[in-house]
Design a protein around this nucleic acid. Sequence first.
DNA 1: AAAAACTACGCAATCGATGCCGGCATCGAT
DNA 2: ATCGATGCCGGCATCGATTGCGTAGTTTTT
Lengths: 352, 352
Amino acid sequence: MYIFSKFILKLFKPLSLMFKPTTIKDIAKALNLSTSTVSRALRGGYEISEETKKIVLDYAEKVNFKRNPIALSLKERRSYSIGVIVCEVANQFFSQAIDGIESVAYSKGYHVIISQTHDSYDREVINVEHLANRSIDGLLVSLSAETKDYSHLEKLHEQGLPIVFFDRVLNSMNTHKVSSNNVKGAFEATEFLIKKGCKRIAHLANASQLSITAERQKGYEEALKKHNIPVDDKLIKYCKHGGRDKMEVEIAVREFIDHDPPDAIFVASDRLSTGCLSTLKKYATNSNILVAGFSNSELVELLNPSLSYIRQPAFEMGKKATEMLINIIESKYPIEEFESIMLDTTLHPNGA
Amino acid sequence: MYIFSKFILKLFKPLSLMFKPTTIKDIAKALNLSTSTVSRALRGGYEISEETKKIVLDYAEKVNFKRNPIALSLKERRSYSIGVIVCEVANQFFSQAIDGIESVAYSKGYHVIISQTHDSYDREVINVEHLANRSIDGLLVSLSAETKDYSHLEKLHEQGLPIVFFDRVLNSMNTHKVSSNNVKGAFEATEFLIKKGCKRIAHLANASQLSITAERQKGYEEALKKHNIPVDDKLIKYCKHGGRDKMEVEIAVREFIDHDPPDAIFVASDRLSTGCLSTLKKYATNSNILVAGFSNSELVELLNPSLSYIRQPAFEMGKKATEMLINIIESKYPIEEFESIMLDTTLHPNGA
DNA sequence: AAAAACTACGCAATCGATGCCGGCATCGAT
DNA sequence: ATCGATGCCGGCATCGATTGCGTAGTTTTT
């Protein structure tokens, strides 16, 4: 009866557990050595004779031995993986940044775990907790548009988890940050519109608590001031869900165009830019409103209405942020001085 | 000297290791219980008195105890995470599929690890190995355009790793598959072009070894045959890197348009569609060539030249595939019968 | 009242790999 | 010949959590 029930138990475990890869013990047994000897031979320990090393290495090769990273993580108390929090991978800016992140991470032996918030605060909290539980060694964060409470991140930071922000940074946290020069980028775009002859330039902005929102608005206002155009609050609208809700963009743009329309709109981010164009196409087909906005989409050149766009060096930003993060992770002494890196954007004029 | 060296060693370990979360042992010690009791109390074992359970639970709550998933993975020999192989997340089809994958995975307690091949065979091999080493419980695969040798996947499959294909499936492998009805989708798109009055319809196809390529070509040819239009091999071009190399698309399209241009092009996938439009815009601005193609981009409506598009139910496909994969993973008996699910596409006419 | 059963918990092995010790040869030096 | 120094390797504990088995102490059964 006992044996029978054990048999049943085995049968009722998920099948995937039945495949058992070769372990260091198997090798030790097969070669009549101790596990410690095998372990040291495998990592080339100097205390093992060349002869034994060769035997072990050859055998390991033969049976296609792979050391178990889970066991290693447990022992070393680190997982060699870093978490990435972004609003969505479908956004070209973030997918390019992720490419940059991966390029550095893989080359340094780290794995990348991506988590999407879809600009929702709740999902950000859940995902951050989830990642923290999965024993990541560090976190790369671009805040969600909705996030106003940062305690989920601050708690982890206090506990010693290395965190680096990129793009949408949290200025109040004392850690590395990577962003683009949003003030300058916004300034250039706005000035471009001014030089095109526009006088009434609206600004479609992201959620007001985001770092990028304030910076881009600052560039926008500085350009207006430089050219003696008054800043009109009625020409500035925020999208507090970052465009996650399609309607909020449409509503904001329609408020611009329905009464006393502007002759140009400066848009603060990717999804807003395309949402803005959609709305214009729908409700103001022949309006000749110029649009300039932040976008890293590869399709911009094909868009109609056309979009002059500010491109951020997303790949570079991802690389930089990851390098900094891995620096913290592997640092041997506490880091006191944190950097804030800023990379330049490029303006691509377009359209009539 | 010994103590000193130990001190140095500690100093030279990465700082991140110095943060030590509460373990079950800490709780046991604090409460003067054994670890087994704590463990069982935490998971509500029936052999622990209600009184003790409450004490343990309360204390665990108080010190914010989280069980270590790494330790669990080691013990249980599973990681509750599934790997996803796609060509790139920037592609809307895949990012939507990933949303579907995540929705199912998270709800069932699995983590999702995404890996991009960028349609390169080499990266596919590396990433698959990498994921396999990270002890994933199962793999969701959409093949890279370049892949012709499948041994890296077949090896894992033989070893018992659950694998489910979606979109770009490997027909020769006996496992679950999810795809859209590519034949029908291509047929409808081609017939739509025919009904628009087009007679010479070119076909810009993906790498010839991909499952989707053959299927979509079949639909294309069936539509032509139904309407008594001869299939012309010169009007069919393959992009063997799936458009990863931008030039290959441009070259293919230019061969179509430079001599005896067609009056329409049916394009087999997302990146090819946009690449095709770019080329047309660049070299055949006023050609009036109609384009219909597979695309899940949300920007299609804004494109110029315009694109009639076939949309795949990406989110649904991701969901289905993940459900099937988790079924295999958690199955208690060997699975003999594998399903191939096919979901319908929708055609969205556009343009003049 | 003796036996059986049950409650509530502890001990120790386990998962895979590592690393500190300690031990046994062998060799050279005194 | 004896001692110390190596070279080479095995034993054992460890990382965090789970679990089969054993066992006090109490309750129920006969």
